[in-house]
Design a protein around this nucleic acid. Structure first.
Length: 274
DNA sequence: CTGGGGAAGGGGCCC
DNA sequence: CGGGCCCCTTCCCCA
């Protein structure tokens, strides 16, 4: 997957920011409005690059609300999203659904909230109690069981078979938190106030802002170089080491980066020591 | 061509 | 459960 998959890159050929222009303006880490939906949707990878098993367009909460072995639900029933109570115009996700989680996410950051849309029920299902409520509403048959038994069944089912699917790419996660974090990579709620670039997480934005400010808080103890990113410092430290971290199993040559080792192997390792 | 730097993405862990 | 941080990884660009 291309690194740029999640970020809308500016087309400016001048890749390097002009730090001198930005030195006196310390961009705040405030998050602006997320990119418009057209951009966000354009960033969604095509289904063919995704998990081949994830071919069915499912609502992300389907697997939560509808246990795979749910005996009370005939297979012909539509997904148990309350939206299904409305006339089904199209199988494609509605705009409100596409923004639902990002709306919730944006509330966590300092991003000014967009006008609160009627909360799609999919996110009220974040808590177990509301999950159960929705599930009970969705499975009228459950009401015929003793409440305690139904609660136990639901709780056990939810605990044993949690599977949260991303509505954008159908990737599956075992926890709601992991799914929410993943969905941020689609919605990109953190927007750079300077250049408009969007990121999935605040700290990614912070790292990006350093490219504007020129701040490099990570210094090499062996030389005078400094880096904006700790991982890049770590990679740099490898260059000071005689024996580097990544070793070719064939020729025992070592490399400072795995990508260099991969290049070495792809180019055809001679096999002899260097 | 190779090595290194810069930038960014994502999962895991801790609080 | 969410935010922040850490770590690893990848890709692009350049010397």
């Amino acid at each position: 997957m291309p690194r740029s998959f999640l970020v809308r890159k500016p087309t400016d050929p001048n890749r390097k920011p002009n730090y001198s222009e930005l030195q006196d303006s310390s961009p705040e880490l405030t998050f602006q409005q997320p990119y418009d939906q057209a951009h966000l949707l354009a960033a969604i990878p095509p289904p063919e690059v995704l998990n081949p098993t994830a071919s069915l367009p499912t609502l992300i909460w389907d697997s939560v609300l509808v246990p795979l072995t749910q005996p009370l639900r005939p297979a012909s029933l539509q997904p148990l999203h309350p939206a299904s109570l409305q006339p089904q115009e199209s199988p494609s996700p509605k705009a409100a659904e596409l923004t639902s989680l990002s709306d919730e996410d944006s509330g966590k950051g300092s991003q000014p909230p967009s006008p609160p849309s009627p909360a799609p029920s999919s996110f009220s299902s974040a808590s177990t109690s509301s999950l159960e409520a929705e599930a009970c509403a969705a499975f009228p048959g459950l009401g015929q069981l003793p409440k305690q038994l139904a609660g136990l069944s639901m709780a056990k089912d939810l605990q044993c078979r949690k599977a949260f699917n991303c509505k954008y790419c159908n990737k599956e996660y075992l926890s709601l938190g992991a799914l929410k974090m993943h969905i941020r990579s689609h919605t990109l709620p953190c927007v750079c106030a300077t250049c408009g670039k969007a990121f999935s997480r605040p700290w990614l934005l912070q790292g990006h802002v350093r490219t504007h400010t020129g701040e490099k808080p990570f210094s090499c103890s062996h030389c005078s170089r400094a880096f904006a990113d700790r991982s890049n410092l770590r990679a740099h430290l490898q260059t000071h080491s005689d024996v580097k971290k990544y070793r070719c199993k064939t020729c025992s040559r070592t490399f400072s980066r795995m990508s260099l080792l991969h290049k070495h192997q792809e180019s055809g390792c001679s096999g002899g020591p260097h």
